[in-house]
Nucleic acid binder design. Structure first.
Lengths: 130, 130
DNA sequence: CTGCATGCAAAAACTTTGCACCGCC
DNA sequence: GGCGGTGCAAAGTTTTTGCATGCAG
């Protein structure tokens, strides 16, 4: 039922080469080099599909468009409140917070979404200069 | 410089009476009873402003429109992946995760955003019935 | 009065979708 | 061939904004 598609492969491959969590628009601009006729609609469709089947991750930062991540290893994200950059954090897992949340809650806690924020190294050093 | 406005007061007051994290649209529909001429633009403008000055919280769930919370006591949210409801959790603080994130990271971790998800009590009991 | 806030409407920003055609299985 | 995928364009959803007017200080 799920058919192979060069476009989808290409989107996935592109995401695997990047660690900067590009937006759909950025992915589209890049894929156009290989597939000049690809449409933004196709990019969005495949990003949704890939997210559904667990091959990539969609990151809704709450600021600007969604971002996408081809790295499915468990990891957390940092969002710079100055420049908006999304950076991978290397930190130990914090799944224990699910237990804390479950305590006294009558629904079921299945997962959590966490973003850290602050200033990234680059923005910090630039503000020193000024 | 920041002028008083009945509309803004009313938005804040409305949010304080609710614990269900309404959307801008819901706030708008309700405020129209008191201010039949209020515009959605004004609602959005004031929600942004109130968020900026720290009187309310904006919750971007990543699904559907943003939601707003008048409760500024530190607390966490649960989002039901079935019905989308946003529920306050009564759990201990988890600020220690900022330290875990900071370890080995060259920017500054100032804060975190956390949502828990799963099924709420209501959705669980409804699925039992079926 | 002066200038921020409002109402209204248009536009922007982001994402989804209908449809005819294309290409994988 | 049949059916899922694509390109294209239009539409949908959510939020922001320009502008003339209104109202608080």
């Amino acid at each position: 039922m799920l058919k192979h598609s060069r476009q989808r492969d290409s989107i996935k491959n592109f995401l695997m080469t990047r660690t900067d969590h590009p937006t759909a628009e950025t992915i589209y601009e890049n894929l156009r080099r290989e597939y000049p006729k690809i449409s933004l609609g196709t990019v969005y469709r495949n990003l949704s599909l890939l997210t559904e089947i667990g091959e990539i991750q969609t990151i809704s930062t709450g600021v600007g468009p969604d971002r996408f991540d081809g790295n499915m290893e468990p990891h957390y994200h940092f969002i710079c409140k100055q420049c908006g950059r999304v950076i991978d954090l290397e930190m130990q897992g914090i799944d224990h917070i699910n237990l804390l949340a479950q305590h006294g809650f009558s629904g079921t806690i299945e997962s959590h979404t966490v973003f850290f924020s602050g200033r990234c190294e680059k923005c910090l050093s630039e503000s020193k200069i000024k």
